[in-house]
């Protein structure tokens, strides 16, 4: 209010549109605002820094514990910020063939990583492709019964199938699929309702004129999808890919139910949990966690823009 008043009074001066003459009050107010501004900024920065340190602390603990000798750790009654003698021994069973399961899985972390990678990439890619095609049809092709089918597809989103994970064992046992990759992979190949819904709303922005022109040029629907719709919806696909990939990489319950009885089938997360039976020293547990975490964190840091954008656009539209 004060600033507003002084502005009026300053424009009343002889020069009319001359440089504003600030009143005493205004100068004082501005000065106090600036000092609280700087103090406030520093406080904000410090709180954010403190929070970041708290969040990152577990990673430091993980690292230090993994390089601390077992004896030193067991004899200590407080946290060891840095070991007297650094040892990398805890990593050995996981990154070499010097382990009890070597006959089955060779280098455990590598074996688990490859299993996780192929299974996750396969389901994620196929699922995205199938969902993308369905989304394209729902958004750009006219066909009888479209509204009814889409309503049905939407309704499936409401069904909390996650609660049925354990009872589903019955169905997969009947199919003879337990103790195999099928329950992890096959259901995922048919696409997902949430993905379809999200991709569909994104594809709505692809101009119909372009598609009509392509149709006149004689392009079939599949090629229109591949050459026109897909390239324009790539950000949406990346967002969904990241969701699905992180979910698959970190999946614990699925592999636990179906893959944990055969070391050959261990995924990365199972390597960490199952090898704990044999290597349960704190350093070894921390070492295996650390190696399992690093690949995804590196990918995240490189592509963090896509992660964060993907999460914020993906989540908001669900």
């Amino acid at each position: 209010m004060k600033a507003y008043k002084s502005m009026i009074s300053s424009s009343d001066t002889v020069h009319g549109i001359s440089p504003r003459v600030s009143s005493y009050e205004e100068v004082r107010e501005r000065r106090t605002r600036r000092t609280t501004g700087i103090l406030g900024k520093a406080a904000v920065f410090l709180i954010l820094l403190l929070y970041a340190v708290c969040l990152m602390l577990p990673f430091y603990v993980l690292f230090v514990t993994s390089i601390t000798p077992y004896q030193e750790l067991m004899g200590s009654m407080s946290f060891i910020w840095w070991p007297q003698e650094v040892t990398w021994e805890a990593f050995v069973p996981f990154i070499s063939t010097d382990n009890i399961l070597a006959d089955d899985i060779g280098v455990p972390i590598l074996h688990g990583f490859l299993n996780t990678l192929w299974s996750t990439l396969l389901t994620t890619t196929v699922s995205l492709f199938v969902s993308g095609l369905a989304a394209y049809c729902y958004s750009k092709i006219r066909f009888k019964g479209k509204e009814v089918l889409f309503m049905f597809q939407l309704a499936t989103m409401m069904i909390p199938m996650a609660t049925m994970t354990v009872p589903s064992l019955l169905w997969y046992e009947t199919l003879g699929w337990t103790h195999s990759w099928f329950p992890i992979i096959i259901p995922g190949l048919f696409g997902g309702a949430t993905t379809i819904f999200f991709l569909r709303s994104y594809m709505a922005s692809v101009p119909n004129e372009t598609l009509e022109a392509a149709k006149i040029d004689g392009l079939g629907p599949f090629r229109i999808f591949l050459k026109i719709v897909f390239p324009q919806a790539i950000p949406a696909f990346i967002a969904q890919f990241i969701f699905a990939f992180v979910g698959g990489y970190n999946n614990y319950m699925g592999p636990l139910l179906y893959l944990s009885d055969d070391p050959q089938n261990y995924t990365l997360q199972l390597v960490v949990t199952e090898l704990r039976t044999f290597y349960n020293q704190p350093g070894q547990v921390c070492a295996s966690c650390l190696i399992a975490l690093v690949p995804l964190i590196i990918v995240y840091v490189i592509f963090q823009r896509f992660f964060i954008e993907g999460i914020s656009i993906g989540g908001g539209k669900e």
């Binding site: 970041a52 577990p58 200590s76 407080s78 704190p282 975490l293 995240y300």
Partner: peptide
Amino acid sequence: FQILYFIPYICSSVATAYMWMTMFDPNYG
């Protein structure tokens, strides 16, 4: 800050559980 704050969310529950177990150890935690 924003990049750092999001890291825990992408950590697997396996690693998360084990790292916090280490944090909560009665002796060396």
